[in-house]
Amino acid sequence: MKSRNLIVILLAVLLLMSFVPGCRDNSTPNPDDLERHERTFFVMDTMVDVILWTAKDRSEVADIFSQVDDELQRLHAIFSAFEDDSDVAKISDAAGIEPVQVQPETLEVIQAALDYADMTDGKFDITLAPVLRLYTFGEDARVPTQQEIDEKLPLVDYSLVEVDMQAGTVFLPQPGMRLDLGGIAKGYVVDVATDMLRDLGVETGVVNAGGDISFVGPKYDGTPWRIGIKDPTRHRTHQFAVIELEGGAIVTSGDYERYVEQDGVRYHHIIDPADGQPARSCKSVTIVAPNAMLADLLSTAVFVMGPEAGMALVESLEGVEALIWDAQDQVHASSGLDWEDRR
């Protein structure tokens, strides 16, 4: 072997070595020179992640986060089912006694919930709380008996809720009735935060409340956001679909989020108001909608309605799309949904 060959080989080796660190370079160029800022807020029993890409300086960004924080804490105090003096708790505590004066935001959310309860044939029902409270998940997990459920079911009827927009009051006429805004208030809060970012002049932003996601504009580089949808049958790691969005909101409801297994049966947290049992016809429902409140309540409602009736409702609504993974592991996509199948 001549020394010239040796030099060639050594050069090849050098080339190879330079290739190795090259593989590990993950920096992504940012064409717009927008800086990323992120803050997490704890409200409504969940983490709300707010991410901005903006050219604003640090003090302006700090001011934005502080304003968002104030507003989120204010809404938390109004909506939380766990705060004794929240509007929701006050309305529930005064059930069968008297109408309760509430904040305009509470009226707005409750009225919206009642409108959509009609549209979903009562499958989305904010008076389901007495039944929901029978189920516990986590360490003290417990599945109620059918008798316990049957005792509470007569208290579940959204059509009884009396909202007086003029007087600004809400009344639950039967003692024992309770409100739960869990399937709608989180989306509402996400929308408020998203609107605030937009009003404060943020160029690009995302509000993510544990998978309830809303966007301010397309991505910082002008491309659509890509959102992975979790495979409901696999353990945490696998996304079965990717949906691209340039704005709006996306929310998924799944039977794998909170559940307890008893005698080999999974009892999850999405309950059918008709019989008080976990809804069984879907494993995961993803809704794309113009705002997170609508996406939030529809993901729950469609999950309970099932793939057929649920998809019919979605197709009838402007700007709303759905991706449903049913109990037989069939995937249904609404006609206008642009999605990438990763199964």
Binding site: T40, M47, I227, G228, R236
Partner: peptide
């Protein structure tokens, strides 16, 4: 999927650098 200890206000998150999606809804 972040690990969150809400009473302690502590969260532990893995942030991806090279996935081909930006967020996950679940």
């Amino acid at each position: 999927r972040p690990i969150a200890c809400l009473p302690n206000r502590v969260t532990v998150t893995i942030r991806a650098m090279s996935e081909d999606y930006d967020f996950i809804t679940r």
